[in-house]
Amino acid sequence: MGENERGESAPRQVVSFFCANGHEVRPAFSTDAPLPDTWDCPRCGFPAGRAADAPPSAPRNEPYKTHLAYVKERRSDEDGEAILEEALARLRARRGE
Rank of each mutant, 00 (worst) to 15 (best):
E5A: 15
V71A: 14
P36I: 00
R60T: 15
E5H: 12
H67F: 14
A93V: 11
H23V: 05
T38Q: 06
D40P: 06
S76L: 04
S16C: 14
R90N: 08
E24I: 15
R95Q: 15
F29T: 01
F46V: 10
A20T: 06
K72D: 08
D53A: 07
V71Y: 09
G2N: 06
A54E: 13
Y64R: 12
A82M: 09
E3G: 05
F17E: 01
G80H: 08
K72M: 05
P63T: 08
D53I: 03
F17D: 02
F18Q: 01
A51F: 10
D53C: 00
M1V: 14
L84R: 15
S30N: 08
F46C: 09
G2T: 11
V14L: 10
E8T: 14
C41V: 01
N61R: 13
G96L: 00
L88K: 14
P59L: 00
R26C: 05
P36C: 04
L84M: 12
A58Q: 06
A87T: 09
G49Q: 03
R74S: 13
L91N: 11
G49F: 00
A89Y: 10
R75M: 12
A58P: 01
C44N: 02
A93N: 13
E85H: 13
H23I: 00
Q13V: 15
Q13T: 06
A87M: 10
R92C: 03
D37F: 13
R12K: 10
D77T: 12
P27Q: 04
R92A: 06
A20S: 09
W39H: 05
D77M: 07
T66K: 02
T66M: 04
G7W: 01
H23K: 03
S30A: 14
T38R: 06
V25W: 02
A52N: 04
D40V: 15
S9W: 10
D37M: 12
P56W: 01
A33V: 11
G2H: 11
N61M: 10
R26A: 02
A87P: 01
P36L: 03
A89W: 11
